[in-house]
Every structure is written in C-alpha cells, then in structure tokens.
Design a protein around this nucleic acid. Sequence first.
DNA 1: GCCAACGTTGGC
DNA 2: GCCAACGTTGGC
Length: 143
Amino acid sequence: MAYWLFKTEAGTFSWQDQLKAGPKGEEWSGVRNSLAEKHMRAMKIGDLGFFYHSGDERRIVGVVRVVAESHPDSTDAQGRWQCVDVEAVDAFPKPVTLADIKATPRLTNMVLVKNSRLSVQPVTPGEWDLVCRMGGFQMPHKR
DNA sequence: GCCAACGTTGGC
DNA sequence: GCCAACGTTGGC
C-alpha cells in the first residue's frame, strides 16, 4: 500500500466537492503534467492520499482513498492523459498547514516542500504517520 | 539535441 | 502583485 498527496485549489475542486461525490468517488481529472500522471498510473485500489488545498488555504484537510486505478481522463478529448478515481475517507480533525509542515524538521523533505508545483505526489510511510498524528487523524474502523 | 523565450503554478 | 521553479515550445 502506498501513500500520496493530491493538490487542488478549493475554488476549483474542494474537499466539500469530494464529500459530495460519496463512496463512488470522483475522477481526479485535469492533471496535465507527466510526472503527476505517472504517480497516478502507479496507484492501486486502496492506496491512501492526503487532500491538500493550495492557494489561500495551503493545508491538508482530509484523506482520500483510491477506488479506481488509472483510466483515460474523461476531460481529455484526445484520450492521452490518465487519471484515477478517489473517494473521501474522512476530514482531518485539525487541518495541517503548509507552515506546520515547514516548521517540522522531519517533514522538510516532503515533496510538498521540495517541489511545490507538483500536483500529485508520493508520501513516505513515515511522513504519512506523522502528518496524521499532527492532524489528529485515525483511520475509521470498518464494520 | 540544445537552449532561450515564454507560460503556468503556487507560495509569499 | 511579485517572482522562483518548472515545463513546454520552437528556432537553430
């Protein structure tokens, strides 16, 4: 199982929009960067990702799960780009801001800090655990 | 195949 | 509003 980070402007596609999509999830469409796309092609069903609001907010607001592996992006008329589908898992009780991350020595190697323009990024297990703890987030139990 | 020019992203 | 970082384009 791998961990990722998905970046979006709240004005374009927000956490609220993701919640509205429900358990069927929503295409993470519109990515037109080959490295970001490569990360999506590597994703497997069940992989988890942070949901990050860029722009004014600049914070991780929740967790999403991959529910469909890469397939053609429906917003690409040429059929050249691929994307995955993700569903909302849960919001962070305490959103973790970019400033929090930059102020945490163990997180300064995150891609979010090193390559701020990449819209879909890998996250290491260590980074994942620490950020979840900072956000007061625990995976909900299945029933 | 190189690289200058240009456009976009996103943090500040 | 600015600008650094990065990707893409196009002339050579």
